[in-house]
Amino acid sequence: MAKDHICYLVGNENEIDLWNQPWHPKGILTSLISKGKTDSSLVTLSNLNDIHHEGDWNPILDKPSLKEEKALLMKAMFNTDNTNRVIWKPTVDGTFCTRSAWESIRSVEQTIPWSKTIWFKGHIPRDAFVAWKALHLKLTTKDHIILSNSTIDNNCLLCNSEAETFDHIFFQCSFSSWVGRIWMERIQRIFEQKRRHKIQILREILANIKIKVNGLPLQDEDTATRKWIAENLVYKHICKINHHKVSTWFKPDEEEFKVNTDASLEEERSGIGGIIRDHEGLPILIFSKDTCSDQIYALEMSAIYLGITRAREMEIKKTWIEFDSLFAVNVIQGNTPMPWKIYSLVY
């Protein structure tokens, strides 16, 4: 396959074996010219220099019996700097690169309509890969696994009432009919032995909807739809919006990201979380975590640490961190004595 994309640029004929080296664009000369059928005067030559020297071809090629051989040989490519080079034809400068190799051998098909839905700028690789597999019906649901292991139980892990198939999990399961993020919950139940109540998952979904509706920029073509979602689904039926104050969110520089973190402490529960946005203000990741701490300063520092960790997992190199805890600012700057409970988070 590679030989179709390379050719020789001959500069020093003395180094080239006339018959056994691939100096000709069409390949090795023995595969192009039969020695038993061509003129013997050509067969006796062994070096390319014998037939081509300093830009001139050997006069023996003017023989009528070598007319076809001459036409073939004159398609060779010669270099003027006295060096022999291997040229990678797919690139302009003849230098090999992996991308050009892939572009030259891959099969180019028509772009599918949902490609930008999966592979967009700032996508989360793990989530995009799962979505891509789902659209190709290649998720490892039990109806696929049972083909190689007939001993497993094929009941759905979520509702435990019907056979587990792609259509069942996403469209028919009584558990998934009203709860999102089904696949991640299933993975946690299988590999991490973690189970969340439906209400916990629902709260996470509603928080994501609220942030996305508030954070995504409206476009002319989807303003009406987005407005309807905000007014009829999110604000009226799901989210309780408190209009206490107006805050200004400053966008990070281009190709940089901003992490906003916060913490919450109530009588019987606490939690931390945040959001990562790109330079256009588009949310690319929402994260949260239940905690058992009863100290708000420890929660604030834990939220910052979690935000930095999530950014590193996404291989984000330039990150702004934004939070509303003056205590955390003073601790990081060394202006406030550090409680021992958060020492490990800072150092």
Rank of each mutant, 00 (worst) to 15 (best):
Q172G: 03
C173Q: 01
S174V: 06
S174L: 05
S176P: 00
S176V: 01
S177A: 07
W178R: 10
W178T: 12
W178V: 10
W178G: 10
V179G: 03
V179Q: 07
V179C: 09
R181T: 12
R181S: 15
R181E: 15
I182P: 00
W183M: 02
E185T: 01
E185S: 03
E185G: 01
E185L: 00
R186H: 02
R186L: 02
I187R: 00
I187T: 03
Q188Y: 06
Q188T: 07
R189L: 09
R189A: 12
I190N: 10
I190T: 14
E192W: 06
Q193V: 11
Q193G: 13
K194P: 00
R196T: 06
R196N: 12
H197I: 06
K198F: 10
I199P: 02
I199T: 09
I199K: 07
I199F: 12
L202P: 00
R203E: 02
R203Y: 08
E204Y: 04
I205Q: 09
I205F: 03
I205S: 06
L206K: 05
L206Q: 05
A207T: 02
N208A: 11
I209V: 04
I211Q: 10
K212C: 10
K212H: 06
K212V: 05
V213D: 07
G215P: 01
L216H: 03
L216S: 07
P217A: 05
L218K: 03
E221L: 09
D222V: 06
T223Y: 15
A224G: 10
A224R: 07
A224K: 09
T225Q: 12
T225L: 15
R226V: 14
K227A: 09
W228G: 04
W228Q: 08
W228P: 10
W228A: 08
I229T: 04
A230F: 04
E231W: 00
E231Q: 07
E231A: 12
E231M: 07
N232P: 03
N232C: 12
L233Y: 03
L233G: 10
V234E: 04
V234L: 13
V234D: 05
V234Y: 00
Y235W: 05
Y235H: 09
Y235P: 01
Y235L: 06
K236D: 07
K236P: 04
H237Y: 06
I238R: 01
K240R: 09
N242D: 15
N242S: 14
N242W: 05
N242C: 11
H243M: 11
H243R: 08
H244L: 13
H244R: 02
H244W: 15
K245R: 11
K245P: 04
V246W: 05
S247E: 15
S247A: 11
S247V: 15
T248I: 12
T248M: 14
